[in-house]
Each structure stands twice: as C-alpha cells, then as structure tokens.
C-alpha cells in the first residue's frame, strides 16, 4: 500500500513537472501576483473592470474579441458589471443588423445578446489597415500563447530600443519578450493613458496587469466555477477513496486467514 502510494505520487509529480518544463518557454518573463492562480484563485473584479476599460479604449481599435458578448460582462465570475451597466455599455456600440423588411442592413444600438463589435469587417480588412499584420483576435489569446498571462503581461512592457546593429523595417518594433524580438504592434501603453474611474493610478504596469487579467477571464470565463468545482470534486474523491480503502481492507481480511 505504502509502495503503491509512493509510486502513484511519484508518477504524478513526474508527469506534472515534465509537462510544466516542456510547456514553459526559456525566456524569463516579468512576474506579478495573479489573483486567479492557485486552488482557490478568483478574479479581482475591479481589475477586470479596469481591464475592460483598457481593452475598449486602447486595444479594441485593432483587436477583435469575437467570442465575447456584452451579456458576459454582467455574468457571474466575470467583471460583474451590473445588468444596467452592461446594457449601457452594449448600447454605446453601433451594431449592424438586418436585413429589415426592405432588405436593407441597418445599424442599431447594441443589446446584451450581441457579440463584441469587431473593429474590422474581416481578416483581410484588418491586415490591410495594419501593414499586412493581422492583429489577432483576443478572445482566447492568453491560451494561444505558450507563456500565457506572464507572456502577455511582459510583452506589453517589453518595448525597448533595438540593440545596436539591429535594423528594423518601417512599422516593426523591438520587444524583448516577442518571439524573434520583432513585433508589428507599436508600444500602446504609456503612463496615464486611461482615466480609471476608481482612482487607481494608470501606470503602464497597472494597465498591463488589468488588461491581462481581463484577457485571462475572456479566454477562460468559467475559471472561478472550475476552481470551486475542482476543490469540491477532489475533496469528495478523497473521502470516497478513504471509505473504499477501509471497505477493501474489511473485505480482504476475510481471506487473509487462509493465506
């Protein structure tokens, strides 16, 4: 039994760490404390709300978030804007709808059920407006990058002058955390760029953290539910395992005498 436990935990640890090392990139990313990590990790609501503000005011002019709807902003486990706030946010966007009875497309104020309005009609239009580079959709961006939140957080703060001798084309910038160090997105954040309504100082670091938190939620909207359910499930499994273990001992004790 002891041997078995040892073996099992050994296998588990081996598996876990080997994949963690495989998954992790070699670059040292900037670190910050993420509230959503760990067994009980939850999102910081105000950080999510601020992150949404940064997204709308800064990122959304180029980056779409096509899998999110305005209703998500009011849902549990997210930024948790009130229903009225979310409705007001939705209504502040012009949504294309139709065709109406005359067969024409028309615009109307957004509703909760609408998806986030996209900055460009399609990928080609986005490329044309951005020198051939497509600003990736940000709905699942955090999960689509090896370094995850740490990578995005670092990238936003990773703009530097290129090292001497490095030639950069027009519209290409140097970023020490970007793969290959060349990025087509210019540095977007500067201190005081947005006005946080809750009085938080809008430093580059703060904005990077807020918007990254927002992107994490966007990519994994059920993260809080998952953590809570996971804890319950594992506690339950441990209890049942203990019960089954003692039942097993009882049952096997019937034949021990014969051995």
């Amino acid at each position: 039994m002891k041997k078995f436990l040892k073996l099992f935990s050994f296998l588990f640890v081996l598996l876990f760490f080997s994949f963690q090392t495989l998954a992790a990139e070699k670059v040292e990313y900037l670190k910050t404390d993420w509230s959503f990590k760990g067994l009980f990790g939850k999102f910081d609501r105000s950080s999510l709300q601020r992150g949404y503000q940064v997204y709308t005011e800064v990122c959304s002019s180029c980056h779409s978030m096509k899998y999110l709807s305005y209703r998500n902003l009011a849902e549990k486990g997210g930024p948790e804007f009130s229903e009225a706030q979310a409705k007001a946010i939705a209504a502040s966007f012009e949504v294309k709808d139709g065709p109406n009875e005359d067969g024409d497309m028309f615009t109307r104020p957004g509703k909760l059920s609408d998806k986030f309005v996209m900055p460009y009609e399609n990928v080609k239009a986005a490329q044309a407006a951005n020198g051939g580079a497509y600003p990736p959709d940000m709905s699942v961006l955090v999960k689509a990058r090896g370094g995850g939140v740490d990578y995005i957080y670092s990238l936003l703060q990773g703009y530097e002058d290129p090292p001497i001798g490095m030639e950069l084309d027009d519209g290409v910038y140097y970023n020490k955390f970007m793969y290959g160090n060349k990025i087509k997105m210019a540095n977007q954040l500067s201190d005081g760029l947005v006005n946080y309504s809750d009085g938080t100082e809008a430093t580059v670091e703060q904005m990077s953290k807020d918007v990254t938190t927002f992107l994490m939620w966007a990519a994994e909207p059920h993260l809080e539910a998952r953590h809570q359910m996971g804890f319950k499930a594992i506690v339950y499994l441990i209890i049942l395992t203990i019960l089954v273990y003692f039942s097993m001992k009882k049952i096997w004790s019937r034949i021990k005498t014969e051995v």
Binding site: F8, F16, H227, G230, A233, I234, L237, L240, T241, V244
Partner: peptide, 15 residues
C-alpha cells in the same frame, strides 16, 4: 479512485 484524483487535478486546475 486514486487515478480519478489525478485526473480531476488535471481537469480542474491545469486543463
């Protein structure tokens, strides 16, 4: 059940 604990850990915490 021991196996399921490992399984659950992956599903809920590092999916």
């Amino acid at each position: 059940l021991m196996f399921m604990i490992v399984f659950a850990f992956f599903v809920f915490y590092t999916p």
